[in-house]
């Protein structure tokens, strides 16, 4: 290396102590992140929260004005979505307050299961959103990022002029119902439905948000969803996500009991 001491690039990245941790590299490569005893994870609580809001971001921060034909989904034509392992599948169609929608999903090569909600038949796709996450029961590829499998996650979108607010997502296939507790204090309990066999062992849920849940007015640093529980047919918790405390999208089941 031939850096000159006055080179601006020296300023940009000074020589800081480097703490090699090969075991952590290997653990990440195997899909598990190593947390040395007594040590904090690389990302502190704030960063964890940042990762967790990604799913929310995909829906809220991307006001897609796009609607794709079956062979030309907006999320693929935008070029920003992970590459699919196979063609997206329409998991379910429905209607919220007179607005038809489709829940679409596909396994990606790098980011686990991608799923999205698309207004159906609208001239513009306002309200459309998508997110990706590694979910237990969905096959990984060689390129899938080394983050642990989640049992449940969510995509949430605030109401727009053309489309109602909603929450949707995948959950492990043992879940018969999903209970969503919102930061505003309201709660919602919705049945799950099966996905296509090609997606893996995963179920989905989707619901219009109650009128008292206002995403736009949520306090800073506070996720709109306080707790997300997947329940089996006997009411036992089989999936859990508490965005405020989860680490890399994972919450112990005990957090939802």
């Amino acid at each position: 290396m031939t850096p000159h001491h006055t080179d601006p690039l020296e300023t940009l990245a000074p020589e800081l102590p480097w703490a090699p941790d090969w075991a952590d590299v290997v653990a990440r490569a195997r899909g598990r992140r190593r947390h040395p005893a007594g040590a904090r994870t690389r990302f502190g609580p704030t960063k964890r929260r940042r990762v967790l809001v990604l799913v929310l971001v995909a829906a809220v921060a991307v006001p897609f004005v796009a609607y794709g034909a079956a062979s030309d989904w907006w999320f693929l034509s935008s070029g920003a979505s992970p590459r699919p392992v196979h063609a997206p599948v329409v998991v379910k169609e429905g209607e919220w307050s007179g607005h038809a929608w489709q829940l679409v999903a596909y396994p990606s090569t790098t980011d686990g299961l991608c799923f999205g909600v698309t207004p159906k038949g609208a001239a513009a796709g306002e309200g459309a959103g998508m997110a990706c996450a590694p979910i237990a029961g969905v096959a990984r590829t060689d390129e899938t990022k080394a983050t642990p499998d989640m049992t449940i996650t969510y995509l949430i979108s605030g109401s727009s002029r053309d489309f109602p607010a909603y929450v949707a997502g995948p959950v492990v296939d043992r879940a018969a119902e999903v209970e969503i507790r919102f930061a505003t204090g309201g709660a919602l309990r919705v049945p799950t439905f099966a996905g296509a066999r090609s997606l893996g062992r995963v179920r989905f849920y989707a619901a219009e948000l109650p009128a008292d849940v206002h995403l736009g007015s949520r306090p800073t640093n506070r996720a709109p969803v306080e707790r997300l529980s997947g329940l089996d047919s006997s009411g036992t918790v089989v999936a859990c996500l508490v965005p405020g405390t989860a680490v890399e999208g994972i919450s112990p089941l005990s957090d939802c009991r």
């Binding site: 704030t46 929260r49 940042r50 990762v51 809001v53 990604l54 929310l56 971001v57 995909a58 809220v60 921060a61 800073t220 640093n221």
Partner: peptide, 14 residues
């Protein structure tokens, strides 16, 4: 990319 998206979603963080 993840960080930019997260910051856009919730500018209070960080």
């Amino acid at each position: 990319r993840r960080r930019t998206a997260a910051d856009n979603a919730d500018p209070g963080i960080g």
